[in-house]
């Protein structure tokens, strides 16, 4: 497939167009999705009409719940949540109804809805506009959790998500939107549950997701010639490509997990537990987690930076792990 350079936001836009053209049951709604300032859904209303593309009132409970209902009734809604923190007002619809309905029905219904969510810190937006929270959703049985880190994956994973017959939460870091990369013009799928080996290495395994893949790669670049760093992006947290992670640690014997989500009870702990269960004897040193401490994210840029994972913190962790 011929590639050309587009942004993460454009890649998401192309995925919507691909699936809306392919399947008339794909409908899109959320706050301001018909706005020209929202890149992922830009132009969809003009192209597919306002029956299929709807602006919703600021009522997360109502429009997420309506997506769940439309999905059960045979549609394939792609519902956008402006920021993940705003989804917390609708936790019943997300965690009870969206996540559990298919199971509770004993399989007589399905909920093929994709909840697209913007996430992420680094913009001095304070404690209710900055969170990641993928760990919270991954904790709940029944939700697939998709966390793209680059334009290629954004397009391929969103297409796969829309086609998948289950509830999915698709989490897009705001700061990735302008990031550019090589993406095919055609429709293609990146399967859910298959990790991406971003860089091959032999001394240490670094597991990172979303924006943190970039930071991990910067750290690996800085250590080039001294430490051979393998960087793995799981791309989906549920399902998790356990084999890719375990096999890499068996090869390198060292592990650092980088996560912008909170440290406690989260993705970083999950990966360390997985390795402890399946490759403990391969570990030559204790694993290290570089994640956001359990502190609500502060407004002050200085305090925010203090808390977030960064290239410098990853480099320090790698050096400590392989010392």
């Amino acid at each position: 497939m011929p590639l050309r350079e587009i942004s993460f936001g454009q890649a998401l836009n192309e995925a919507h167009i691909s699936e809306m053209e392919r399947d008339p049951k794909v409908i899109v709604f959320g706050e301001n999705v018909s706005s020209p300032w929202r890149e992922a859904t830009r132009g969809l209303k003009e192209r597919f009409g306002r029956e299929r593309v709807r602006d919703a009132p600021i009522t997360e409970t109502a429009f997420i719940g309506a997506g769940v209902g439309a999905a059960i009734a045979g549609y394939r809604p792609v519902v956008e949540l402006m920021l993940v923190d705003f989804g917390l007002v609708a936790m019943d619809q997300i965690l009870n109804q969206f996540a559990k309905s298919a199971y509770m029905s004993g399989g007589v219904i399905s909920v093929p809805m994709t909840l697209r969510v913007l996430t992420g810190a680094g913009t001095s937006s304070g404690a209710t506009h900055s969170e990641s929270l993928h760990g919270l959703f991954a904790h709940m049985p029944g939700l697939k959790v998709v966390v793209p880190s680059n334009p290629y994956d954004a397009k391929g994973l969103l297409i796969s998500s829309i086609r998948d017959p289950n509830p999915k939460i698709f989490m897009e870091h705001r700061l990735l939107y302008p990031v550019k990369g090589q993406v095919p013009e055609e429709t293609f799928e990146v399967p859910l549950g298959v990790a991406n080996l971003v860089r091959e290495g032999k001394d240490i395994t670094v597991i990172a997701t979303s924006l943190m893949v970039q930071e991990a790669m910067k750290a690996a670049d800085e250590l080039r010639g001294r430490v051979s760093v393998e960087v793995i992006d799981p791309r989906t947290l549920v399902p998790l490509d356990e084999e890719a992670i375990v096999n890499s640690v068996k090869k390198t014997g060292h592990l650092v997990v980088v996560d912008e989500d909170y440290l406690h009870y989260g993705f970083s702990g999950e990966v360390v537990a997985l390795v402890a269960e399946k490759a403990l004897k391969s570990l030559e040193a204790p694993p290290i987690r570089v994640a956001t401490p359990n502190v609500p994210l502060p407004f002050s840029p200085k305090l925010e930076k203090e808390l977030l994972p960064s290239k410098e913190k990853i480099v320090a962790a790698i050096n400590r792990a392989v010392a």
Binding site: E31, N32, S34, S35, P36, W37, K45, R50, V53, R54, D55, A56, P57, I58
Partner: peptide, 12 residues
């Protein structure tokens, strides 16, 4: 309007 954007369905 929402955030300055004239919305395609009313919110009220």
């Amino acid at each position: 309007r929402m955030l300055g954007h004239e919305i395609d369905y009313p919110q009220l």
